[in-house]
């Protein structure tokens, strides 16, 4: 076996099925979306090439801008809940000695509930008819004036469709952060403590920088996930009332599949893809510190040198 694995061609053959699958399931739809974004097609008859017309329309479309801003609000809430609350819970969990597994499981449960069930759960909590638990509690504690129809009030609806998504995956990120935190070398934390750092300082200055890679990974997942956020907002309000809780993905779906504008829908999809890639790149740059970049540059140069040496040695 060792002999085969040394052969680069064998490597490629083993990688091929996964690669082909990836190309067909991920790359091909993206390429098709890009192709469709230059086309006008209502689902029937001839597809008409329209050049950049869909893109021009996109940047003139008021609803698209609404959806874009809504998506940013959605993103802030979802990221805030999943990363901050997830991290907070993970940190608290590290202080626990008993029942960690039980609590971890308990907090993880929302992740395994399907989106439709989560939606139903929140719909009944937000409801006015029959009165949901949120309004009931508000009235019980004498804050009845704040009771409202959460999903139809244009001031609250966007926040209300964002919260379930944040709530749903907080437990998952908690588990990831917890795993990262407990894998840290306790000696380092102890050294910090001996040097006079208090708990807060140890967390901010020592522990978090050490799980930077995990933070980057989770942020990437959360951000791209939030940019593509669809199921819960779609089922909960379908972007409504009006377009008040419209997200880019729900708008894309509406245009392509309800409005029969497959070309324009694809244009929005391409925008979402481009935006997600951009966000990942920005994150990468932000998370790569100056020292690290310098270090990488040096490593690269060293590799080059070694190569040159080898060649000249031959």
């Amino acid at each position: 076996m060792k002999g085969i694995l040394k052969d680069k061609k064998a490597f490629l053959i083993f990688l091929l099925p996964a690669l082909v699958f990836y190309l067909f399931s991920v790359f091909y739809p993206i390429a098709e979306s890009i192709r469709f974004s230059f086309i006008k097609w209502g689902g029937l008859g001839e597809k008409k090439f329209v050049g950049l017309q869909n893109y021009i329309h996109l940047f003139q479309d008021k609803v698209f801008y609404t959806a874009f801003w809504n998506n940013l609000v959605y993103l802030v809430i979802v990221v805030g809940m999943q990363i901050l609350i997830g991290l907070l819970l993970a940190v608290l969990l590290t202080y626990l000695t008993k029942g960690v597994a039980f609590i971890k499981t308990l907090y993880y449960v929302p992740c395994i509930i399907t989106a439709v069930a989560v939606t139903q759960l929140f719909r009944s909590m937000y409801a006015t008819q029959p009165e949901g638990i949120i309004n009931q509690i508000l009235k019980a504690v004498g804050l009845g004036q704040f009771a409202t129809s959460w999903l139809t009030n244009i001031k609250t609806v966007l926040v209300c469709v964002s919260i379930p998504e944040g709530w749903r995956y907080t437990g998952m990120y908690m588990v990831i952060f917890y795993a990262a935190l407990i894998s840290l070398d306790p000696e380092i934390c102890e050294a910090a403590r001996i040097d006079g750092a208090n708990g807060w300082q140890t967390l901010i200055r020592v522990k978090l920088p050490m799980i930077k890679e995990v933070l980057l990974l989770t942020l990437t997942m959360v951000l791209t996930g939030a940019l593509r956020g669809f199921d819960i907002p779609f089922i909960l309000t379908n972007g409504g009332p009006g377009n008040v809780s419209e997200l880019m993905s729900t708008y894309m779906y509406k245009k392509a599949f309800a409005g029969n504008q497959f070309g324009y829908g694809s244009t929005i999809a391409v925008f979402i893809i481009a935006e997600s890639i951009l966000v990942v790149c920005v994150l990468k740059v932000l998370f790569t510190g100056k020292d690290e970049r310098e270090e990488r540059r040096i490593q690269k140069e060293q590799r080059k040198m070694r190569k040159l040496e080898r060649r000249s040695g031959r």
Binding site: N238, P241, G242, N243, N260
Partner: peptide, 20 residues
């Protein structure tokens, strides 16, 4: 048409509530 229908459906709700 489907697109106008969606626009009417979505926004009539806001019209009825007085939000637009």
């Amino acid at each position: 048409d489907s697109n106008t229908c969606t626009v009417v459906n979505d926004n009539a709700l806001l019209l009825a509530t007085g939000d637009i």
